[in-house]
C-alpha cells in the first residue's frame, strides 16, 4: 500500500475528480445520500458525495485507506455523533426520512440501521446475553419465550446456532474470531434492522472464517439492505451487487460491481482495480 501523499502523484493533473462517473442512483433506494460533506474540525474528510443504497442489495465501498469510506459509512447511522469534532453536512435519507433531522432520534435510527465493526467486539457477557442485548434495551420482547425465540432465530440467521446451541451461557469472548464476528452479526440482526453497515467485517479473520462471513452476507441480502466497507477487491467482487470507489474523500465512480471490476470508466478506478496503487 502506498501512502496518500505518494498516491497523489499518481493522479495526473488532467484527471477530473469533480464529478462522480457511473450510476449513483438506484431504482429502489433504501437510503439515499446527497451532497454529503464531513469535517473533522477544519479538515474535510468527505467531499460532496452522493449515492444510493439499493434495497436488498449489497453495496461495497472500496478505495485506498484513508479515502473516507469508513467515515462515510459511519454517517449512515450517525455513529460519527460520538466524535465531538466531527461535523456532517448534506442530505441523508432513510426511506425518505432525513436521518440528520433535529427531531430524529439517533437511538431509533441505530435500531433501524445496525452496524458490524472491523474487529469482532462481543460484550463480556454470555452468548445468549450478547444477542439478547439489543432486544432487551429496545424492549422488543415482552417475555422470556419471545426473547429466546429472537436469540435463536438471530443465531440461526447468522449461521452460528448449530455451533453454540449447547453453550449459550458461555462467554461470547471465548469464541473464535470468525464465530465472534458472526455473533456480532447475530447481535445486530436481533434488533431486526432494515440496513446493516459493515466496516471491514472480515479484515481481522482468517480466510476460512472470511469465506463463511461472505456467504452469510450474501444470504442476509434477502432480508436486509447492506453496505460494506472493504479493502479487499476480491471480497467486494464476491459479495456486492453495486460498488462505489472512493478516493481522497470523493466518490470517484459507482456502478454495477461486474462493470466496475471488468470495465471501469474512470482512470483512477482502473488504476486501483489493476493494483497500480492502494
Amino acid at each position: 500500500m502506498i501512502d496518500l501523499s505518494s498516491s497523489e502523484s499518481l493522479v495526473s493533473d488532467d484527471i477530473d475528480l469533480s464529478k462522480t462517473v457511473g450510476e449513483i442512483y438506484a431504482d429502489d433506494a433504501k437510503m439515499s445520500m446527497r451532497n454529503v460533506n464531513v469535517f473533522y474540525d477544519e479538515k474535510q474528510a468527505i467531499d460532496n458525495v452522493s449515492l444510493d443504497l439499493a434495497r436488498n442489495q449489497v453495496t461495497a465501498l472500496i478505495g485506498p485507506s484513508g479515502c473516507g469510506k469508513s467515515t462515510f459509512l459511519r454517517c449512515l447511522n450517525r455513529m460519527n455523533d460520538t466524535i465531538p469534532i466531527c461535523r456532517v453536512e448534506g442530505d441523508l435519507r432513510l426511506e425518505d426520512e432525513d436521518i440528520y433531522a433535529k427531531k430524529l432520534d439517533p437511538v431509533l435510527l441505530r435500531a433501524r440501521v445496525g452496524m458490524v465493526f472491523q474487529k469482532p467486539n462481543p460484550f463480556p457477557k454470555s452468548i445468549y446475553d450478547n444477542v439478547a442485548y439489543g432486544p432487551k434495551i429496545h424492549g422488543l420482547a415482552t417475555n422470556k419465550a419471545e426473547l429466546d425465540e429472537i436469540v435463536v432465530s438471530s443465531l440461526q440467521r447468522a449461521g452460528l446456532f448449530n455451533e453454540v446451541k449447547d453453550r449459550l451461557d458461555a462467554p461470547g469472548t471465548g469464541l473464535s474470531g470468525g464465530q465472534q464476528q458472526r455473533l456480532c452479526i447475530a447481535r445486530t440482526i436481533a434488533v431486526s434492522p432494515e440496513v446493516i453497515l459493515m466496516d471491514e467485517p472480515a479484515s481481522a479473520l482468517d480466510p476460512i472464517a472470511t469465506a463463511v462471513i461472505e456467504e452469510l452476507i450474501d444470504e442476509l441480502r434477502e432480508k436486509y439492505t447492506i453496505a460494506i466497507v472493504t479493502h479487499s477487491m476480491q471480497q467486494a467482487a464476491r459479495v456486492s451487487q453495486t460498488t462505489a470507489y472512493f478516493h481522497m474523500g470523493k466518490l470517484v465512480e459507482m456502478g454495477k460491481t461486474e462493470q466496475i471490476f471488468t470495465n471501469p470508466v474512470h482512470e483512477l478506478t482502473e488504476n486501483y482495480i489493476t493494483g497500480r496503487f492502494g
Binding site: 434495497r55 432520534d105 437511538v107 431509533l108 433501524r112 429496545h138 422488543l140 434488533v191 431486526s192
Partner: peptide, 26 residues
Amino acid sequence: KNPADSNLAEQLSTTEKVALSLRKRH
C-alpha cells in the same frame, strides 16, 4: 415498494416498539 420485503410487517412493529420505549429511556 418491494413485495419481496416480507419482513416489513415485523419491521414496522420493531420500529414502533423502539419508538415506544424511547421516552422512558431518554
